[in-house]
């Protein structure tokens, strides 16, 4: 099939950027979208042009490295699919595909399509963990976790940290990422002791870098793991509770 790529090229964080158009004739529909970029980069090299920089690694939809805004959608048109798992057969022969980097002040552009997502690490560092130093754990089966709670925690924990939620959000909010990380830990019994300090810490750290959630729901649609915005509601509720709860005298009641 024949495609035309319009790709955002930007030499560095503060350089001006522009779209460049590249004809991609005769590509196979069995290719993945990133393999299309591999082919493009070989072409560019042959023409003595610098290859397009883009983050990618596992190419099986789990590491969360790949990040492209494809025709106005984070990760492209296929639902529940990261860029690396998008295959060309899902695109129309002869079409012009526009590819941009994630755009958010919290994700500064490094070069071309590669952005810096380390703000996500800052959010996790602020409280996205359970304090359980190695060696102190009791037998795993002493902690009973209702299957439903465990399944819900796993739904949230499936987040791959790709940043599509921020990219897709009209407000550039990171609520879905933060909520997923938060809910994963706070739905489990092990996560209860730090539940309310965690939510305040994570929300405040998140708000240093990103916009606010106004419930567009765009993040849920863009998420390659289809994580539900129900977790955002949980985050919001717990944040409000945390501010007004008498945690000092709540004892064991989380």
């Amino acid at each position: 099939m024949d495609l035309t790529l319009r790709v955002w090229r930007q030499a560095g964080p503060d350089s001006p950027g522009r779209f460049e158009t590249y004809a991609m004739p005769g590509v196979s529909e069995d290719m993945s979208f990133l393999e299309l970029f591999d082919v493009l980069n070989e072409q560019l090299l042959a023409d003595n042009e610098e290859p397009v920089a883009f983050d990618h690694d596992c190419r099986e939809g789990i590491c969360g490295s790949c990040a492209m805004m494809i025709d106005g959608r984070a990760h492209g048109p296929e639902k529940g699919t990261a860029t690396c798992q998008l295959h060309l057969r899902k695109l129309k022969n002869g079409s012009v595909i526009t590819v941009e980097p994630w755009r958010s002040a919290g994700f500064p552009i490094i070069k071309d399509l590669a952005v810096d997502r380390s703000a996500f690490d800052r959010i996790v560092e602020s409280g996205g963990f359970i304090t359980a130093p190695t060696g102190a754990a009791r037998d795993a089966n002493e902690i009973l976790v209702p299957k439903e709670a465990s399944d819900a925690a796993m739904d949230a924990a499936a987040c791959i940290g790709c940043g599509a939620c921020v990219a897709a959000c009209p407000n550039s909010a990171a609520q879905l990422f933060t909520a997923a990380k938060y809910s994963h830990l706070s739905l489990l019994p092990q996560g209860q002791p730090e539940r309310y300090t965690r939510v305040v810490a994570m929300v405040e750290e998140m708000e240093k870098y990103f916009g606010s959630c106004t419930n567009h729901g765009e993040c849920e649609q863009a998420c390659p793991k289809e994580i539900s915005i129900d977790f955002i509601a949980m985050l919001n509720r717990d944040f409000v509770k945390a501010q007004f709860k008498n945690t000092r005298l709540s004892g064991q009641r989380a």
Binding site: F129, I130, A132, T134, G135, A136, A137, R138, D139, A140, I143, L144, V145, P146, K147, S150, D151, A153, M154, A157, H184, L185, L188, Q190, G191
Partner: peptide, 16 residues
Amino acid sequence: DQCVAQGVPFAREYGG
């Protein structure tokens, strides 16, 4: 034990 304490959501039986 360590992973469960950290909150790794391993698959569970109905009894927890």
